[in-house]
Amino acid sequence: MTSHSLHPDTWVDQYADYLFNYAVIRVSDAEIAKDIVQETFLAGLKSAKNFKGEAAERTWLISILKRKVIDHYRKINSNKGKAEVRMTYNSSVDSDGDWLEEQVADPYSILENDGIENEELGAAIHNCISKLPKKQGQVFKMKTIQGISTEDICNELEINPSNLWVMIHRSRTALMDCLNQNWFNI
């Protein structure tokens, strides 16, 4: 088994987006997700000496992040009564069957799967982006995810538009290959 080591200096650059994406799906609030990622990094630093090198850095950070997400829900639910599970029997006209039967999930619904699949897809895409050269990844993220206009990106990074389109082209081609291997061939 290969042993892993920690490099906290590179954490933000390498994993912040991945962790943020993971967190934002679970708490559905960008501000809270940002705080959780920050807390994760801090907690990671604090317990760095407990890191045994058995897992990859990212896996280890994700496991901390998961605890932080759970803590977040515990905190907002700690007010009395909020944690109660409420079930109401809905006696409207169209519910004439068995109470229990109506609580069962619809076996033909594929909506739940969609959510999980999209989440995994997001992780796969972020994984592929992190393999791109830094500049290309940066341009791709600004353009595709943040939706910044071509002009603004050119001004901020001090490049010209044709330069930008070349970088976009390279990153898109690389991403297509990467997703082909990691997403479509599972």
Binding site: A16, F20, N21, R172
Partner: peptide
């Protein structure tokens, strides 16, 4: 393929810092 990539990115609702 390029169009596919765009639709995948849309579907995943990517977000970053």
């Amino acid at each position: 393929k390029n169009t596919m990539l765009t639709s995948l990115c849309d579907k995943a609702k990517l977000s970053n810092l």
